[in-house]
Every structure is written in structure tokens, then in C-alpha cells.
Amino acid sequence: MVRPCGRRALLFEVTSAAEVAAIVSAVRAAELAEVTELVPAARTVLVEVAPGAALDRVRDAVRTADPESGSSGTGTVHTIPVTYDGADLDLVARTAGISRDEVVELHSGAEYTVDFCGFAPGFGYLSGLPEPLRQPRLESSRTAVPAGSVGIADVYSCVYPRRSPGGWRLIGRAAVAPEVLFDPGAERPTLFTPGDRVRFEAR
């Protein structure tokens, strides 16, 4: 479904992360100079154009989107060193019916794509979590999760960019300074951008 958002934007509502990724890829591939904002979320993509620009070429680009292409992220590749000693590592292993070492092997052996960012500045939702690790959030959220914590929830993994409340299952700590994950004063404030790829390296 396509919904107009004022005169300068379209909101595309879809049913899967694959469709979101396909729309983002199609719009980027079209290299439309008039596009000023491209904002993916879990099941929507907002595309905004410059004042006075038409939206027709955006619609044409999105028509070429192919969710079946299996395209993964095409942006920057980030390798994040992780110490796997999270508070919920045993819970994740027990829920999956595997050992702690197998949790580490599965999590660090996958490649993830930054589907979208939200919740907090610099917080990326990383798809690609192996099936045995796809588990619900904690029943009760923590009031404070340390910056750099690596978590899992549902089909995603994440790295907390700053100390904040959170209910994801924590499996480790990233060896990345918080200001690398999010620095509002930097030219590029966030490490992760939708379309980037992420690999975790066990330390």
C-alpha cells in the first residue's frame, strides 16, 4: 500500500523485511537526485523528495523492487569484536537447547544487515540472526543496559549505542567505544546505516 505524506513524500507499507530492503535497494539504485530522505522501518519505507519535485520517478523506481532477489546489505561492512559474557547468555543457551559455546558460534558465524534504526539514536536493528537464537524479549525490561551491550530479540541482534533501558537478551559486550556507535557532533553521527552489513568476532 502507498500512502501520500503531504506533497513531498510517499509511505510504502509492506508485510516483510525483505520487501523493505527491496524498496530501499530499488530507490538507491535509481540514484534519484530529487530524493532527500529515505527512511526504512520494520514494515514501512518513507521516501521524501525536494520541494517542487515530482514523486512519479519514486513510484517508478519502487515498481522495480524485487523482494525475491535475496539481496543483502550493500553498504559498509562493520566487524565488531565481542566478549561473549552477557547476563542472559545462559538463558539463551537453555532456551535454544544448546551450549554457551554453540550460541557464540552461531551468533558470530552469521552476517547481519542493518534493516533500520530506531528506539534510540544509533540503535540498529540487525537482521540475519540464526533460527535457534530467535527468542522473545525479556518479560521485564532492565532499567539500564550498559552501552556496547550486544543483545538479541525476535529475529534481530543489536548493539546498544548508549546506556538505556532495554529488554533484549544480552549475550555479550562489544569492544567499541560508545562515541563510535553514536556521536551527535560527528559528520556521520551513527556507525550503522540501513543497508550496512555487520559481523561479530568473538574475542
Rank of each mutant, 00 (worst) to 15 (best):
G124H: 07
R169N: 13
D115G: 14
A87N: 00
L106I: 06
F123I: 01
G73E: 09
R59Q: 10
I80D: 04
S16F: 07
E37W: 07
A26N: 05
E105R: 14
P130T: 01
G124P: 07
A65E: 06
D183R: 11
V39P: 13
S157N: 01
R3W: 02
A50Q: 12
E34N: 10
R28V: 03
G70L: 01
S25R: 09
G86H: 08
D88Y: 11
P81I: 06
L11I: 00
A61D: 02
D66M: 07
V104K: 07
I171V: 15
V49S: 08
P194S: 12
A26R: 03
Y160W: 14
V155P: 14
D60K: 06
L170F: 05
G6W: 08
P194V: 08
L46W: 14
G151Q: 09
F200V: 01
E31A: 14
A96V: 08
E13W: 03
P130S: 00
V49P: 07
G109N: 01
S99E: 10
C5Y: 09
D88M: 04
T143P: 03
P132K: 01
P184G: 00
S99M: 05
G109T: 01
R7M: 09
E179I: 07
P67S: 03
P136M: 03
T74L: 10
T193Y: 15
T44E: 06
V58K: 05
E37K: 08
A26H: 03
A42T: 06
A177P: 14
G195Q: 04
V150Q: 09
D90G: 06
V114T: 06
A22Y: 02
P184T: 02
W168T: 06
M1A: 11
S141R: 15
V14K: 00
T79Q: 15
R142I: 02
